[in-house]
Design a protein around this nucleic acid. Sequence first.
RNA 1: GCGGGCGUCGCCAAGUGGUUAAGGCAGCGGCUUGUGGCGCCGCUAUUCGGGGGUUCGAGUCCCCUCGCUCGCCCCA
Length: 430
Amino acid sequence: MEPLQSLRGMVDLLPAVTATWQRIEASAREHFRRAGINEIRTPLLEVTELFARGIGEATDVVGKEMYTFLDRGERSCTLRPEGTASVVRAAIQHGLLSQGPQRLWYGGPMFRYERPQAGRQRQFHQIGVELLGVADAESDAEAIAIAWDLLADLELGGLELELNSLGTLDDRARYRAELVAWLEAHREQLDADSQQRITTNPLRVLDSKHPDTQAVLAGAPSLHDALSPESHERFAQVRRGLEALAIPFRLNPRLVRGLDYYGHTAFEITSNQLGAQATVCGGGRYDGLVQQLGGPATPAVGWALGMERLVLLLSQAAAKGAELSQSAAPDLYVISRGEAGAQQALLLCRLARQAGLIAERDASGAAFAKQFKRADRSGAPWAAVLGEEEAAEGVAKLKDLRGEQAERRLPPGEVVALVKQSLAACGRQP
RNA sequence: GCGGGCGUCGCCAAGUGGUUAAGGCAGCGGCUUGUGGCGCCGCUAUUCGGGGGUUCGAGUCCCCUCGCUCGCCCCA
């Protein structure tokens, strides 16, 4: 039989890393709780049209990266490639927006059919925040601050906040025309990809990674100069907001987000330690999206962070020194022999667990020497032995694995009490 | 979709055409028929991702294929 494998780009998270995931999730939850942001959970599967309309038909995500299929009712369904469209759909569907501004967060798997590489999988995980119904520039700063503080708490170094304003739709339309004209005039000096994008997505030419193209682009018209005075002022206000919070940022006039719904504020938090996929968190303002999805005109700002990339950073940090959290050593390791012994061992474990202890039972039936070896390796301070003799007498032999105390034969209840007491004595709270 | 690198036991890993595929960790058994941490002994890949080919002979060379990985594109 050929062993089966997971699908390409679909990754198992083994116990060795789940602790890191939980740490990030717990930290995020706490930050959201303090910020008055509530969790929303939406389905993984949505009608394809939601993403086509929300993200934009012309984007790469919609054009070539979606997991789309027909269900048994011949409806076109898509595994969500991002979270915002679903959250907005849910808010509209349940009338949340008529109850005032909504501060929401979500987390979970997203799906994009791409070639996997470092920090990029086909099923990947995001945690995101959406502030719906807030128009002020300070809300942009607040959203960014929440992401920034959350990441700071994880003690990650080498992070940088990049900031730009995409202006309004009008601003961009005007700029786009100007840029296309300029790009056409310099077409010969651009790399093939960029030439292609003059027609498909001219703004994206700006952050081409091609060095020659970048050099040519130095003379290109800047989006910044094309912003209307109002857009300019709004951007300045966001920056003043961040400055007031002492959050450092770098202006990046080339920062263009790949999803159509962004306007005005756009930002990314990047790491210099991640390789090619350096963006840990990305987001911005999307004032037009709610209406575009059939809801009431509602300004909004939000972001999403990539769990895999965070985990990558955290693992690197751990490799450099600090130990990654491991599963806890048991308080009591129970070894046994024979059916009666195994039963008593199970009973003892259950009693211990009911009392709040971490109890592990050796189920190998191996020689006692082996079981003691495993007891030792488990890191448990105590081992309980249940052989034929103990089982017959209704006691367990309790052995101190780390100290000098003599073995004692005790009924199960007293074993649990004694272990608990010893933990309390050395300051550990079971 | 397009490039580059890689693929030897659960994990790490030697091997660079010559005939029995090192070693370490983990695992299992024993020295120790009911007591661990040390030590010692033994066992664990008819096989080198898979399939073809070259050769007297291939893990080692060639082709195809699958997988992993890094990068491009794009994004979290």
